[in-house]
């Protein structure tokens, strides 16, 4: 019973992290049909900037994290304009290649600036320790991750379902051609979505630093992990990303607890089975 509970809490926390980092990727990939392998780089940048602000500048956790996320958002806008715009119309392979190149440059830039060592993000006092729920104790950090994740989901739901921007975004994902005929500025929507996705990735990178430690090679190491969430969830689907992130997070945690000797096999076999049965992903459109 205790084991099941820890699997669920750790799995849900891991799933929330995966969701925060991957959701922006899923929406931008669904919106512009661009394969982006560099998205994990924004999570890494968020984590690295937070680490730098806390360790070198002595700024406390919360302002550091906020500044880091803002910096990533600000950086992502010109990156999208200069580096991503030209590749939208290209085929899948040039996109893969270009974004691998961008990933390499991000890795090189961070290891040039901060070195190739691990970049720990010390937790503030309120997030340390554990909370006693009466029947069992939970690490406080996990609770914060889950709460932040729920806020992000709620916010995204509100944004896409209840706002004018969300209506335009959904229209642009469903049918970019028709949407722009109706006077929706799809390229502006894409810029905003890209920046939002980058910011969420930075948030996920910071919150998830306990589970996915930050270092310069982070974008390459976890690239497949984030892309798996997107592919399994279905391109462009926020709900799909959430389901996929939760399922893969819980499955991976359960496999690690129960069958540690098999490592990541379960994760990849699950992905092969799901994509074999539903090539367009859980909630993707054919």
């Amino acid at each position: 019973m205790n084991l099941i509970l820890s699997i669920i809490t750790d799995g849900v926390a891991f799933g929330m992290i995966l969701f925060m980092i991957s959701v922006g990727l899923s929406v931008t990939m669904g919106l512009m049909r661009v394969v982006n392998l560099a998205h994990g780089g924004f999570a890494m940048l968020g984590g690295a900037l937070t680490h730098w602000a806390m360790m070198q500048m002595g700024i406390p956790f919360l302002p550091s994290a906020v500044l880091a996320i803002l910096a990533v958002v600000v950086l992502s806008v010109p990156m999208e304009r200069v580096l991503y715009r030209p590749i939208y119309k290209m085929g899948e392979l040039p996109q893969v290649l270009a974004t691998i190149g961008i990933t390499f440059i991000m890795i090189a830039a961070i290891s040039f600036w901060l070195g190739a060592t691990l970049m720990p993000i010390p937790l503030p006092a309120v997030m340390q320790g554990s909370v006693d729920l009466g029947f069992r104790t939970l690490p406080t950090q996990r609770i914060y991750v889950v709460v932040v994740g729920l806020i992000v989901i709620g916010g995204l739901f509100f944004l896409t379902e209840r706002t004018r921007f969300g209506i335009r975004l959904r229209a642009a994902v469903d049918h970019p051609g028709t949407a722009s005929c109706l006077g929706i500025d799809t390229s502006r929507i894409f810029s905003l979505t890209f920046a939002l996705g980058a910011g969420l990735a930075a948030l996920g990178g910071i919150m998830g630093a306990e589970l996915l430690p930050i270092d310069a090679y982070y974008p390459l190491r976890y690239m497949v992990l984030f892309l798996t969430v997107v592919a399994v969830g279905g391109l462009g689907s926020i709900t799909g990303s959430f389901l996929a992130a939760m399922a893969l997070g819980i499955l991976d945690t359960a496999a690690r607890y129960q069958f540690p000797e098999f490592g990541t096999i379960f994760f990849y076999v699950a992905m092969i089975v799901i994509l074999g049965l539903r090539p367009q992903g859980l909630l993707g459109k054919a």
């Binding site: 798996t228 990849y268 076999v269």
Partner: peptide, 17 residues
């Protein structure tokens, strides 16, 4: 497309494991 890319990556990862 993306599904094929991801599946081929997964096959290689399973073999490595």
């Amino acid at each position: 497309g993306l599904t094929l890319l991801m599946l081929t990556i997964a096959v290689a990862e399973v073999f490595q494991e």
